[in-house]
Amino acid sequence: MTSSPGADPRTHPDPEVADLVAEIVTGVAGVAGLNSGPFGSVATYLPGRRIPGIRLGPEGCAVHITAEYPADLSALADTVRALVEAVVGPPVHVTIEDVHLEQKQVSP
């Protein structure tokens, strides 16, 4: 991770890394999107914006997602974990907050 001089990368996440993690996660087949969890508490806070569903910190990385139904949730979490660990290193904790069921439109 790159950071500004004097900034601790464990407490000041690199915006480029946070954006990359979000892009990787949302690109995984079976991931409907990032999920900020209860009360919107899971996020990486950056100057002027936040990235919901991703928390980078000294204790590792937390990724909270909404999965597409049907899905092998365990395999999905393992895939997301492996891809994110390749960028930020372990530990990466993946939580599936919700499952999205695409509603088919019924013609009148």
Rank of each mutant, 00 (worst) to 15 (best):
L83E: 12
P47N: 05
Q103V: 13
V87N: 02
L56Q: 08
A86E: 09
L73P: 08
I51E: 11
T95G: 04
G48F: 10
V88Y: 01
A75L: 13
L73K: 04
H93I: 06
T95Y: 12
G57L: 09
P70A: 02
C61K: 00
A75V: 13
H64G: 01
P90G: 08
L56F: 04
Q103I: 10
P91S: 08
H100W: 10
Q103K: 14
L101A: 06
R55C: 04
A77K: 03
L56D: 00
I51T: 05
G60I: 02
L101E: 04
Q105T: 13
V84N: 05
R49Y: 07
P70W: 07
H100S: 10
V80S: 00
A77C: 13
L83F: 00
A62R: 15
A62K: 13
H64N: 10
I54T: 03
I96Y: 07
I65E: 00
V87G: 00
P91W: 04
P91V: 12
Y69S: 06
E102V: 10
Q105I: 14
P58L: 00
H93D: 09
A71C: 13
V94K: 01
V99Q: 03
E102R: 13
P52A: 05
D98P: 00
Q103W: 06
V94R: 03
V80F: 08
I65C: 01
E68N: 05
S74T: 15
P90F: 07
T79K: 09
E97I: 01
G89W: 00
I51P: 05
S74M: 15
E68L: 15
R50I: 12
R50H: 11
L83K: 10
R49T: 14
E68M: 14
E97K: 02
V84E: 10
E102Y: 09
V92A: 02
P47R: 11
I51N: 02
P91F: 06
V63M: 03
T79L: 11
E102P: 00
G57R: 12
I54G: 02
G60C: 09
P52R: 00
K104H: 14
G89K: 02
V99K: 02
T79R: 05
D72P: 06
Y69I: 01
P70L: 10
K104S: 12
I96Q: 03
E59H: 09
D98H: 05
R50L: 14
C61I: 13
H64P: 00
L73A: 02
A62I: 15
T66G: 02
A77F: 12
G57S: 09
P70T: 01
H100A: 09
P52K: 00
E68I: 12
P91Y: 04
Y69T: 07
C61R: 03
L83G: 03
V99M: 04
P47K: 08
L83C: 01
A67V: 15
A67Y: 06
Q105G: 09
P47G: 06
R49G: 09
T79V: 08
A67D: 05
A75R: 13
D78L: 14
D72M: 05
T66M: 05
R49Q: 01
G57H: 15
Q103T: 15
V84S: 08
H64E: 10
T79P: 01
T95L: 08
